[in-house]
C-alpha cells in the first residue's frame, strides 16, 4: 500500500493526533475518505497528526483486531478516548465533530 501522505508518519510519537484509516482497496470511496480526513486534519490540527492507512483486504488481521465491519472507517488512536467514524466523510463538519477536532491541539492534553 502506498501511504503517500505528507503528514503521515505511521504512528510517530511526535504528534498528538493519531488516526488509523481502514479502507478497502483503491476504490473512489477509499480515496475520498482519505482526502477528506486529511483536509479536516490540516484545517484543525495542522502538522500535529498522523494517519496510518490500512487496506482491510491486505491486512484482515488488523480489521479483525479492531472489529471493523464497514469501510472506510477512521479510528482515533490518540488522544484517548478512542473515536470512530464510518463513511467517505463528505460532510467535513460532521467528521470534525465525530473526531472531536474543533479545538486547537494545545488545549488537548497529550500525555
Amino acid at each position: 500500500m502506498n501511504h503517500d501522505f505528507a503528514n503521515e508518519t505511521g504512528g510517530a510519537p511526535g504528534v498528538s493526533h493519531q488516526f488509523r484509516l481502514f479502507i478497502a482497496g483503491s476504490s473512489p470511496r477509499s480515496a475520498r475518505a482519505r482526502a477528506n480526513l486529511v483536509r479536516v486534519c490540516d484545517e484543525t490540527v495542522p502538522d500535529d497528526y498522523s494517519i496510518d492507512v490500512v487496506d482491510v483486504q491486505e491486512q484482515p488481521d488488523l480489521a479483525e483486531e479492531f472489529s471493523v465491519l464497514a469501510t472506510p472507517l477512521v479510528v482515533r488512536l490518540a488522544p484517548p478516548p478512542s473515536r470512530r467514524a464510518v463513511g467517505d466523510f463528505t460532510d467535513l463538519q460532521r467528521l470534525a465533530a465525530a473526531m472531536d477536532l474543533y479545538r486547537l491541539p494545545q488545549e488537548e492534553s497529550t500525555t
Partner: peptide
C-alpha cells in the same frame, strides 16, 4: 461509531 457518508461492508467481507 458515527456514520458520516457512504460506506460498504468490505472489511467484514475481507475478514
Amino acid at each position: 461509531e458515527e456514520v458520516v457518508g457512504a460506506f460498504d461492508f468490505a472489511a467484514l467481507i475481507a475478514r
